[in-house]
Simulated assay, not measured.
Amino acid sequence: MMLTIKLPQVFDFHQVPHVFREDGIISGYRHPRSSALDCVLSSFQMTNETINIWTHFLPTWYFLWRFLTLYSVLDFCNEQYTWPLLVYMLVICLYPFTSSCAHTFSTMSPEARHICYFLDYGALSLYSLGCAITYGLYVMPDCWINSLLHQYFIPLAVFNSLICTSLSCYSRFPELEYPQWSKVLRTTAFVYPFLFDNIPLFYRVLVWAMEGCIHNDAIYNHCYHLIFAFLTGFLFASHLPERLAPGRFDYIGHSHQLFHICAVVGTHFQMEAILSDMNSRQLWLTANTSKPSFLGTVGAVSIAVVLNLAIIGFFLCKTHMGRKLHIFIL
């Protein structure tokens, strides 16, 4: 007897609750009460989330492969100089995987949607912290080494990660009543730590440009990363091209898919730039500054994980209480 699998049905925007609707996306929605199995099966059929799932799931394996390759040649356990890279490689494997899972299982219920994206935001805030750790220890301009900014760069980045998670999670609550305000809050939540993390890089790029653009592999890759980071933010905030032609880009080519691709490509260039800086500046950095500490690398991320989970737990309780109040009123 032949085994047949029935793929889940897809719906138009007017057939799903407002919380599941996306600007400019008319069709391809999954059932708002999908089972976990239906969510997994839907990743193998064409919906408006399918490419979102795969554009972060496949890069997860690419970054994991790069991490394992580096692990085979570097002594992450005993060589302190590599600890910032260890943290960075872990978070660039984490954030696309978490995003892929969020897009896969977010249609199990409105509550599940909040949970999925709370965790997604938390992973992104940890990614921003991982960037700050490597930038503070490998990318910081020579003239800023041992400065006040250099000394407090990572503690400030830990604080920024908490702001990022808090603001992005909170932005989901006014989403239905004040969608524009919600978008502003969420965009700010991610732009703010990005700008802070890249302060050392902005300075280095400016100096590099003023010196006549001397060939530098690390700076070239950093510039490519900044270009794709700008595109990522622009696509996230603008909802282009689907806003100009609702329904035309429901399955392929809408802004969320494009911003996923730009984010991953940007992360690739960022990784290459960090590796280049790490290798080319090792002798100078080890001679002019102290070695990376456990507290400033793995410890900082561990503290941020605990605190971010506490923030997510708070908003989960808030979501659950709001749901109970809504049912009581009804």
Rank of each mutant, 00 (worst) to 15 (best):
D12S: 14
D12E: 15
D12V: 02
H14L: 03
Q15K: 13
Q15V: 06
Q15H: 13
H18L: 15
H18C: 03
H18T: 13
V19T: 14
R21D: 05
R21A: 09
D23C: 09
G24S: 12
I25K: 03
I26F: 05
G28Q: 04
Y29E: 01
Y29T: 06
Y29D: 04
R30I: 04
R30W: 04
H31W: 11
S34P: 09
A36W: 15
S42N: 08
F44A: 09
F44Q: 06
Q45G: 01
M46A: 05
M46P: 00
T50W: 02
T50S: 11
I51G: 04
I53Y: 11
T55C: 10
H56M: 06
H56F: 06
H56W: 08
L58A: 14
T60W: 02
W61G: 14
R66I: 02
R66K: 11
R66L: 12
R66T: 05
F67K: 02
F67Q: 03
L68Q: 11
T69L: 07
T69Q: 12
T69V: 01
L70K: 07
V73R: 09
V73M: 05
L74K: 12
D75H: 00
F76T: 03
C77K: 14
Y81C: 00
Y81D: 00
L85Q: 01
L85G: 02
L86I: 00
Y88I: 01
Y88L: 13
M89N: 09
M89A: 07
L90D: 04
L90Q: 08
L90F: 14
V91D: 10
P96M: 03
F97S: 13
S100W: 03
C101W: 02
T104Q: 04
F105Y: 15
F105T: 11
F105K: 08
T107L: 02
T107V: 12
T107K: 11
M108Y: 02
M108D: 01
M108F: 05
S109E: 08
E111I: 13
E111V: 13
E111C: 02
A112T: 10
H114T: 08
H114Q: 14
H114Y: 14
I115E: 06
C116S: 14
C116L: 12
G122F: 07
G122S: 09
A123V: 05
A123W: 04
A123Q: 08
L124R: 12
Y127K: 11
L129H: 09
